[in-house]
């Protein structure tokens, strides 16, 4: 990967921050959206925003993860139709060879998870996604400006709420 040409308005640390964080940022968005292609779109948006921000380099990892979670959740909330379309397209392209019925089950499961995630309170959803993307409790607390002691409670309640949403949807459908 080459360094960016020196341009006014582009942070000099962007290439290094990108290299260190891009896979994780894609991972955060993918957990929300269920589609690798959509997740990369979100990651591109997030790094563009970072590129023109004044976020300190030391806080970049947490900032990018939070921004990816919010941006992806916004997509779920505001563009559910588009997200579903993208998800379907992505499922078509990255589905491994296998039983068609399995693909349908996987796709339905992903759609159910996305809908459940979109119904969670925003903070719970973000904490949940960050934790399941591998951020430590301390990292989540720092990134979201929360007290470290509150992360476990928020994760716990988010997981209980997600499971309830998924079970409720399953039993009603």
């Amino acid at each position: 990967m080459t360094s960016p040409p020196s341009r006014p308005g582009v942070r000099p640390d962007l290439a290094e921050v990108f290299r260190r964080n891009y896979p994780r940022v894609v991972g955060v968005a993918a957990r929300v959206l269920g589609s690798p292609d959509s997740a990369e779109d979100v990651a591109q948006e997030v790094f563009l925003a970072f590129g023109r921000s004044s976020v300190p380099t030391g806080e970049a990892g947490g900032w990018l993860s939070v921004a990816a979670a919010h941006t992806a959740l916004n997509l779920l909330r505001d563009g559910r139709r588009r997200a579903v379309r993208e998800e379907n397209a992505a499922t078509g392209t990255d589905a491994v060879a296998g039983d068609v019925a399995d693909d349908v089950v996987v796709r339905e499961e992903r759609t159910r998870v996305r809908a459940a995630l979109a119904r969670l309170p925003r903070r719970q959803a973000v904490v949940l996604v960050l934790r399941h993307s591998g951020l430590s409790y301390a990292e989540v607390a720092t990134a979201l400006d929360m007290s470290p002691g509150s992360i476990g409670t928020t994760v716990r309640r988010a997981e209980a709420a997600l499971r309830k949403e998924l079970n409720g949807h399953a039993s009603s459908g």
Binding site: M1, F18, G34, S35, A39, D94, R163
Partner: peptide
């Protein structure tokens, strides 16, 4: 936690092409 982990498991995305993304 296990149920949430399953629901949010990473989508099989293959390797991210860092150079192309950059």
């Amino acid at each position: 936690a296990a149920a949430a982990g399953t629901a949010l498991r990473a989508v099989p995305a293959g390797d991210v092409d860092l150079a192309a993304a950059w």
